[in-house]
Amino acid sequence: MDIIACIKRVPQTAEADVKIDSSGKDIVKDRLQFDMNESDTYALEEAILLKEKFSGSLTVISVGTFDAEDTLRIALAKGADNAIRIKAEDFGELDGYKTAQLLKAVIKDLKHDAIFTGCIATDDYYSQVGVTLAELLGMPHASLVTKIEIDGNTVHAYRELEGGLLEHLAMSLPALFTIQTGINEPRYASLIAIRRAAKKEIKVIGKEEINAEDIVSFSSLEKLFTPPVGERAEILSGTLDEIGTRVQGIVKEKGLL
């Protein structure tokens, strides 16, 4: 089985102080850690598990600048066989649609029975590249997948809906799955695989191979700004005892018990 996983290198902003840079369109990155996007780590693991089960090859692809090769190498060390970087620097501002077209331009020439992507990137929050890519490649998709079982020619994909409900789909391959966090337990790399990965060549594809004029975007970033502060909570201050007494007063007064 030939499998493809699309991954993205993103700044870790969940627990960091995020500041807007002087262009107003990007963030200050020099104090941020960069890692593989969270749901992509689960997508990669799902791809590796499938490869281990059915044998075949796993190719990882990332649209990114040079640094993305570090992330691709991590994927190689964890179990991918080949890695491709699409040179983001060659294609200007990227939105989800443009990213999907770049991926399509490369993937259409590769054998693929199954494609895995994360369900959302924690930087731009678009959650659209996977589903768009499936459409551009003319293959069925299932998004927000939290379980996959393969039974002969049928893939049972379980999508996460609201309220703990799952949607059970029966699909045929080739298909694309956007993977939700928690579906599996992403693995560590072994030192032997790390050594192998360190020496592997990463294929780099840029504007010489992909005609940038054919690639359009649907949207452009106008500006970043700090979210307007809504009606914020009344912050209870003082010693712990004073805070506790305030809470006591609130629950009594409102009859919450």
Binding site: Q12, A14, E15, A16, D17, R31, L32, Q33, D35, M36, R73, I74, A77, K78, Y188, A189, I194, A197
Partner: peptide, 18 residues
């Protein structure tokens, strides 16, 4: 190679950024 206990990730990223 991102192969270390998950509970340390947040700590390291916070230390680096703040």
């Amino acid at each position: 190679y991102d192969s270390y206990p998950a509970e340390l990730k947040g700590v390291i990223s916070r230390l680096y950024s703040s």
